[in-house]
Structure formats: structure tokens, C-alpha cells
Simulated scan of single mutants.
Amino acid sequence: GRALSTYLSGRLRTFVNVEISLDQITYEEFIRSVMIPSFIVVFSGDVFEGSAIFEMRLDLFFTVLDILMGGPGENPPNRSPTDTEINIMRREVLNILTLLAQAWADFQYFIPSIENIETNPQFVQIVPPNEIVLLVTASISWDDFTSFVNICWPFPVLEPYLEKLANRFWMMGRKTEKLVEKQEELSEAVKRTEVVLQAVLGETTLTLGEVLQLRVGDVLRLNTHVGEEIEVRVEGKKKFLGTPGKHRGNYAVKVTRLVTNGGEEV
């Protein structure tokens, strides 16, 4: 979870919290739990006999994609992703699977490869319905956003490594305190990261012809009025509202309200 948190925090330029949980269910139960549509990646490794599944909820898929493309990561659409969107996120998933392979490195390193990508779970049948699988769920959250990623490991894929896996989980239990310390260190490091903050007095729209005719002394009418609150943006995303003024001889802005991830002003 720590490696995934670090990776996503870097890609999304905000602290991302990742919590891992495990469950043992049948493959049929897993397939029934997957939403339609969803982003389903069938993957394997060079040392595995069989395949596993990486599943990402579409709200997370579109939110991450929008942020990577320079957008605000708000209001994800309720539809299946396009081929272009899938190809972009395919690279991100391969990077995440590489992190997974590194986590396995202590007992069995593997080179991940993507076999297929589907959006309908009914078209993904890698083992019989009654086969037991290990379901690893990563709860991913930042700001007011929370979603999930699931990794479905069929028992036949894990069987050759069960003893090593059991020893690994036992050692992880002894390292809980150290992991908490590392997470706190990551949180502090993210807090020290410099970001661009902009106070936007207002905006307007001009045609190219109007821009070419601009001269010194021309007045541009903005979409805000004197005395109104203005937007305060962090890395291009609207985060606060404020009022402009002066402080100790410099232009300044006083923060008056917080803008949540959903755009609500509080």
C-alpha cells in the first residue's frame, strides 16, 4: 500500500491514502461484485501458471485520467471508456503492476504483462466460477474522494507460493509500527512540496481579432465585479474563494471560503 500511495501521490500531486484489505471468496462472487461497466485488466507474470485480474472502479479511472490530462478531476462521466482513454490508463496500470511485482520481490519476482482489457465482467472468465480467489482491495482516497481497486488472485496462481506468502504476512504484522512511521514521513514530505497558488481577479473571452487590436490603455471588462470574492487556485484547481486587498505594501488575498472536491463552497 505504501508504494502505491507514493506513486499516486506523485502522479496526482496530492497526498493519496491507500488502505489494503484481504478477503477469500469464490471467483463467481468476485465477478458479481464488479460493476458494469468497469475497467478490468487481465494480467499475468512470466513465472505464473494462469492469470489474475486488476479491476478499477470507473469513477477512479476517469478522475485519475482527468487529472493526468491537466483537468480538475471532478464529475467523472457515467459511461464506458474509449479506446484512447484505455490506452492512456493502460500505461498507468502497468506501472502499478510493476510496483506489485516489486512487492513480491522478496519471495518471487515476476515481470507483469497485460493480456486483455474488458469493461464487462461477464466476458472475463479466467477460472471456474467456484474457484477460490484471494481478493486484495485497495481503498484509495484524497480530499473528499474515495474509490477502490481490486486485485483478484485465483488460488491456482498463488498455490506454488502459499508458504512464502504466509511468512511474508507474518513479517508484515511485525513491521506495522515502522509502516505507520513511513506513512507519516511521506505525509510530511508531501506537505513540504511547493505548489503554484494563483489569485484570479477575473477572466474574459476575446476573439483573435480583438486580441490583435489591443493597444496600451485599452480596458478589458472581466467577469467579476468590484467587491466580489475571487477564485484562489492551487495548481490550476479552484480550491478557495477570497477577497483581494493589500498587506504590508503588497497585493494580497484573504481566504474567505473553502471549495470542496465536488465544487461546493463552504
Rank of each mutant, 00 (worst) to 15 (best):
N95V: 11
P72F: 00
E181K: 12
K254Y: 11
R233S: 04
E203T: 15
F123Y: 09
E265H: 04
E210W: 04
T176K: 13
V93Q: 02
T146C: 03
A101F: 07
P154A: 05
V124L: 04
E74K: 14
D46I: 11
E203N: 12
N130S: 15
G202F: 10
K178A: 14
P37N: 09
V211K: 02
T243A: 14
V266M: 13
L208I: 15
R192D: 11
K254W: 06
I151N: 01
A103N: 12
I126P: 03
E49W: 12
R57W: 06
F43Y: 07
L179P: 05
Y109N: 04
N261I: 13
T256F: 03
E163Y: 00
N250F: 10
V195P: 03
L134F: 13
A138Q: 10
G73V: 00
D83L: 11
E181N: 10
F61W: 00
G217W: 02
V18P: 04
V42Q: 05
E85H: 09
L65D: 00
V34R: 06
V47T: 08
E55D: 10
T63D: 01
K175Q: 15
M171C: 03
D83V: 13
L8V: 08
L94P: 10
L165Y: 07
I132R: 12
S33N: 13
N150C: 08
F169L: 11
L100H: 06
I88R: 01
N167I: 09
A105C: 01
I96N: 00
E74N: 04
E177W: 13
G71R: 00
A3C: 13
E85M: 08
W104H: 08
F123Q: 07
I126F: 01
P160E: 08
E184M: 05
V93K: 00
F15V: 12
E228C: 02
P76M: 01
F54L: 05
T204F: 05
F148Y: 14
G236R: 00
L100D: 08
A3S: 14
D66N: 02
Q24P: 00
K239T: 12
K239S: 09
L241G: 05
G71S: 02
S44G: 15
I36S: 14
K237Q: 08
I20N: 09
I117T: 08
S80V: 09
K175D: 15
M35C: 15
F39A: 12
V219Q: 07
S44T: 15
T6G: 12
T26I: 06
S51C: 11
I25Q: 08
G202L: 10
E235D: 13
A138H: 14
E131K: 07
T193A: 08
N250D: 05
M89T: 01
I31N: 11
F169M: 08
